[in-house]
Nucleic acid binder design. Sequence first.
DNA 1: GATGAATGAGCCTTCATTCAT
DNA 2: CATGAATGAAGGCTCATTCAT
Lengths: 213, 213, 213, 213
Amino acid sequence: MPKKTFYNLRDVKREKIVNAAMDEFAAYSFNDASVNRIIKQSGIAVGSFYQYFDDLKDLYYLVLTLAMKSKYEHLKAEINSLKNHDFISTIRALYRGGVKFAFSDKRFFDISNNLLKSNDLDIIKRLTDSAENSEIVEFVNNLIKDAIDNGEIRNDIDSRLIVSIITSLNTSFIEHMLYEKPEGLYGDDYNMISDKVIDLLMNGIAIKEVTND
Amino acid sequence: MPKKTFYNLRDVKREKIVNAAMDEFAAYSFNDASVNRIIKQSGIAVGSFYQYFDDLKDLYYLVLTLAMKSKYEHLKAEINSLKNHDFISTIRALYRGGVKFAFSDKRFFDISNNLLKSNDLDIIKRLTDSAENSEIVEFVNNLIKDAIDNGEIRNDIDSRLIVSIITSLNTSFIEHMLYEKPEGLYGDDYNMISDKVIDLLMNGIAIKEVTND
Amino acid sequence: MPKKTFYNLRDVKREKIVNAAMDEFAAYSFNDASVNRIIKQSGIAVGSFYQYFDDLKDLYYLVLTLAMKSKYEHLKAEINSLKNHDFISTIRALYRGGVKFAFSDKRFFDISNNLLKSNDLDIIKRLTDSAENSEIVEFVNNLIKDAIDNGEIRNDIDSRLIVSIITSLNTSFIEHMLYEKPEGLYGDDYNMISDKVIDLLMNGIAIKEVTND
Amino acid sequence: MPKKTFYNLRDVKREKIVNAAMDEFAAYSFNDASVNRIIKQSGIAVGSFYQYFDDLKDLYYLVLTLAMKSKYEHLKAEINSLKNHDFISTIRALYRGGVKFAFSDKRFFDISNNLLKSNDLDIIKRLTDSAENSEIVEFVNNLIKDAIDNGEIRNDIDSRLIVSIITSLNTSFIEHMLYEKPEGLYGDDYNMISDKVIDLLMNGIAIKEVTND
DNA sequence: GATGAATGAGCCTTCATTCAT
DNA sequence: CATGAATGAAGGCTCATTCAT
């Protein structure tokens, strides 16, 4: 947790530091990130850094928390705008939220990916235990459980595996989109994309024999 | 490329070094890996290390090559045992090979994952250009292309995205299995698992309404 | 070029470092000089060294520059105090300046000698290109050219060889004097010495038969 | 002193080692010379090296001794061929011998120069004390002493300084010649050169006013 | 006498972190 | 709250030398 000196700083300065940290953690894993580069980019003195933070992990945790909060808000916003709360609509909203989050600041996407690589269980545990994350996890778990109960999705697959598949499918898609549309997405793109992912998730890649529907 | 001196070593010693290196590269990305830890674990002197290898990358490349060769052989074995070479059978064989590879030595799985994170283009290029890898990549690309042409799988999805989905689905699954069955898999487990993944990949997670087939 | 941090240091400390470096480069060629010895002698931490300098060459260049500036000033002072600018007077002034320079700090003499041995073309080029050096070189070249044109010195010897002879004669003399008078020279010694060298240079070691002049 | 194992070797091998060592010590000062390069170039094993020599200095000393012996023989040959033993003739013979020595194998020249740079007093003392060197030194000292006594050369200069000047003049000249005639010298060149150096040494670079001789 | 694997002191350099001002 | 000099553990790597075969 950043020290109170950090929160006493002028907004501009605080943001400059966070900004430099985001650049750093998007470009480097935690282990490879460098205090020096961060202070250089944010124009503060080494000593100041340690007056704001206990150490680099302190700042790292802050950035991850920001990322998580942003993601949480994107997801929340999509869920809240839903009329139907059936499985498909909800999961589509989650996807849409995820894509919007990634495109809101591509560094967030890289930071998350770098986190997954890091094996820092300490950090991961702290994030996992956070209120926002717990809420989302519980929400998704319930969503899947209900969908299974309601016969909307298959019950022959471990629900943890389903979560994992949903997540990695999402990641593959976002990576693909960031590569295809580096300049950013517009309005309906988000719906189109989430529709496609849902389609794949639900129906797979096989062509179904045309039945008399 | 390790130096001649490395191949002159007694098998036991050589294996001890490779073993230590696999532990290291499974636990740390290339950038975070440490020559010191490796020599300590394998009980050799610093000087010896540099008499065997040009530098750490030299050893890293060796380990990656071993991993790749092992994977290649697992995949090849499965493909060769196939009777039908239709898309589903083939991709199932690939999945089965992948799972067997990961369970043959879990460190291989971690090493591969760490490689993907590292952005060492030099190493990635060398591996990408290797004969084995090129063969697999071409094989999979042709497989998908043919499947699309034959109407076996959807043509509304970029084929690069399909490869990415197939891969990440595989990774999710293996991670899941390593977590569920840390003690290892047995005989039919492999078939069961690959059947399930294929099913998911092809048909998705939705329950299909029963049609009058 | 030393970093800003080096120039921020207290004079005492800065001088202590330069002093240690001069001892080192007087005793060892650049290739054999050791960062460790220098920091030990100047009582700073390893880390500090690299906060002051990019590397050892950085400090080496500083020391050489100091030596060269000192030499330049000694030569300049002698030249400026000249009334007659004929060849003999001028070259005598140069000799005198050179001897004064060597006796101002004997380490300078060793440092220069060590430089000549080193084949570090990078450093040599940087020094050669410096304003002070270029000025001296051009000055001496013109001096010799004019002396040849004016019939003051022989024209049957390559002028590059003359420069080389003048230089090595000077070096021999200084070495001899440093050996003979390690405690240092006084006032008129400098004139006496330079007169002798000039005499030797101009007239050689033979005794001339007395002619009826 | 090389061990007797070294002298037990076949001539070809022994010469190959000496040859590699000469290359090395011509290219690098003793401190920068590398056992590794020498064994690589001479195609022997590391272990063998230490079976022939105590250490690198041992080999270095051997090479220097060879160089000195060669120089001694060149000088001796010239002296022996003299008819007149007056100062000028003798010193000219010495110069001629020195030039012939340098051109007999340019590496000898480089090796000598590298030695001067090295501050290894141990080695220098051993060489200085050697029979050959003592003989030459004594010979030259007597030569000068006699010349002074006979009124052939000036008595107002320390005789050690004269030796030093003779030597450095010789070095300058040889360097100049190696630069001007890298392809080697022929027959009369040696006489012409030594005449010029003698002229310079005896009469200096000044043009003498024409007297009525 | 030949071989080359083994060794470890020692070199240069980086970096997070501390601390006095 | 700001500053940046000071620190030293740790990392990668080289090299002469030893020693078992």
